[in-house]
């Protein structure tokens, strides 16, 4: 039982790390630009598809990653320059409508280019197989690599936000935008940077999961809602909040699914427990979100009502 718990904990952390990568960009864009980007999930999807394409073309996972990342940034910047820029001073609802439209367009575009069937990305040789941890459990190396990469990004983000000039601007921008522009900072440039950066994080997450998850046109939509849940639980604009919330959602979802029914069986008879478990399991993260928001209406680390 302890082994299982440990495994599930690792799995929960890995799911959380993934959600963090997607949610980090979302919360930055949201907090700093006050921009709701429904199309953020497509960046994740495009990252995975580009990764698949370039990995296949070069025959090498690492080369593929190396080419896919700049490609995602270019794609994200193109979206920023041609569409999002025109939406920053619009209402949230206009942003929702336009970016929802964009999501439809890109998703269909992906279907037209790559087809509806899932496509394949191999696990790199170096990271295949599994490894024995603490002498008691086997764990896939690639998943450990995802956790490591995600943690590295999180640390990098922390250093950048708290100990660099751009980080200072970001923090200032999130809490008080007029001040930033008063400082004479080129807001256009800052916004484009933030957006490209968020796109890269989401694309990176997509590229990372390509060897683990199904790369198909539905992948952007399914991750988007989870990412929004993370952003809102963490508090809009807070990268730290997104990190905590992502791990929380990942761990609660993974552990709850396994241990929820076991706990329920202690309280009620097995068939009722399994029925209740089946009903409750998919609701878990929504119950978590409702609970957090009922107690802290601006999320765990939210500074203001958005």
């Amino acid at each position: 039982m302890f082994n299982l718990f440990l495994l599930q904990l690792l799995n929960g952390v890995q799911l959380g790390i993934l959600l963090f990568l997607v949610a980090a960009g979302l919360t930055l864009i949201f907090g700093i630009m006050d921009f709701i980007n429904i199309a953020h999930g497509v960046l994740y999807m495009v990252g995975a598809y580009l990764m698949a394409t370039f990995a296949a073309a070069t025959g090498n996972f690492w080369l593929g990653l190396l080419v896919a990342m700049p490609a995602v940034v270019v794609f994200g910047l193109a979206l920023e320059v041609f569409l999002f820029r025109r939406l920053y001073d619009r209402s949230h609802l206009d942003q929702v409508l336009a970016t929802f439209g964009l999501m439809l367009i890109v998703t269909e575009g992906v279907r037209m280019i790559w087809g509806s069937s899932p496509i394949f990305v191999p696990v790199p040789e170096l990271l295949s197989g599994s490894i024995r941890l603490l002498g008691i459990i086997n764990y896939p190396v690639y998943r450990l690599a995802i956790i490591a990469a995600g943690l590295a990004v999180a640390v990098g983000l922390y250093v950048m936000i708290n100990h660099s000039r751009i980080g200072m601007l970001l923090r200032a921008g999130a809490s008080n935008r007029p001040v930033v522009s008063a400082l004479g900072v080129n807001i256009t440039w800052l916004f484009a940077f933030v957006f490209a950066f968020g796109a890269m994080l989401a694309g990176f997450a997509g590229a990372l999961v390509a060897p683990v998850l199904s790369v198909d046109p539905g992948m952007g939509g399914s991750v988007l809602i989870l990412a929004f849940v993370v952003v809102v639980i963490g508090g809009i604009g807070s990268v730290k909040g997104a990190f905590v919330a992502a791990l929380l959602v990942g761990v609660v979802d993974t552990l709850g699914r396994t241990f929820g029914p076991i706990l329920l069986q202690m309280a009620m008879d097995p068939s009722a427990a399994s029925q209740t478990g089946r009903t409750l399991a998919p609701m878990l993260i929504y119950i978590l979100m409702a609970l957090v928001l009922a107690i802290r209406p601006s999320g765990l680390f939210g500074r203001r009502a958005a």
Binding site: L4, Q14, T254, R257
Partner: peptide, 15 residues
Amino acid sequence: YTPLGQLDFSGELAQ
């Protein structure tokens, strides 16, 4: 039983 559309089966595989 896993939620419809579940992405990650690591939990079930661990079990």
